[in-house]
Write a protein that binds this DNA or RNA. Structure first.
Lengths: 148, 148
DNA sequence: AATGAAACTCGGATCTG
DNA sequence: CAGATCCGAGTTTCATT
């Protein structure tokens, strides 16, 4: 559950966050240890759910250039159901439950402004949704995943 | 600019989004093509900025369990400067410029509730910030990166 | 599409604190 | 005893044909 990361783990993560397919041999020689050590550490990080090496696509290169943040009010006792419905939207890439007047916040990523409107309309049709507040994203300045 | 990817590209991305270190030979045998084809396709996807294979850490496993979304109003003509200051915060992992009364929205990821408060106070000290609205995240239900 | 050399991965045995 | 190293056999990568 609570795994203590040390400097070598951090070094491995650092290397893999630049190139997830970097060979263990190369990481090992950079960190002055054996390849087997890196291999073992890597497995531990994986097994403990701390690290995963995955392919991620760049939305802009695929023509997905617009985004919006939408706050939603839902009918009482319906948050879970609403979330389940929202999960099905491919355009919705982030769903979080929040404090404040709107109990759900989602973020969408779509090709262009027209699709923002189109997606809003589709969300608006959902049963559990009673109110929406849309914030259009004009630019993204930071988007990182290094938590330490 | 906008690159058209085909089914084989999608197949490769699909495999690598499960395990970014899967060998090209294995992907090749799954997709019934030669390893060289996969290797070439992979390079093209990389070179065109469509795909990257990276290590990502799971914040929860590292004890980073709390999050908040903060909307910010900034002094006129100071958006860029404000963004530059905000970028320096390690806790801030997402910064976007938005429509509406608040011109900037950021998301933070921190170990616990106390650090939300602490980070808020630090952001509040910034010169360009005139107003803040904080939305605490109670749970995250979806967080994907497959855009197609 | 096939070949082969070089690089990489992987498992066992062994060593070290 | 967990974690590091050594080492050889088996795979994968990658340029050439």
């Amino acid at each position: 559950m609570k795994y203590e990361i040390d400097d070598m783990d951090r070094g491995i993560i650092k290397h893999l966050s630049i190139d997830g397919r970097m060979s263990f041999t190369e990481i090992a020689s950079n960190l002055n240890v054996t390849e087997k050590t890196i291999r073992l550490r890597y497995k531990n990080l994986l097994d403990n759910g701390i690290l995963s090496v995955v392919g991620v696509v760049n939305p802009v290169a695929l023509g997905v250039k617009s985004g919006a943040i939408i706050q939603l009010k839902v009918k009482p006792q319906s948050i879970i159901e609403a979330v389940e419905e929202l999960k099905k939207f491919r355009e919705i890439r982030y769903i979080t439950m929040t404090s404040g007047p709107y109990s759900i916040l989602v973020q969408i990523a779509v090709p262009g402004p027209d699709e923002i409107t189109e997606t809003l309309l589709r969300i608006n049709e959902l049963d559990y949704i009673t109110e929406m507040n849309t914030i259009v994203q004009l630019a993204v300045y930071k988007n990182t995943y290094d938590y330490f």
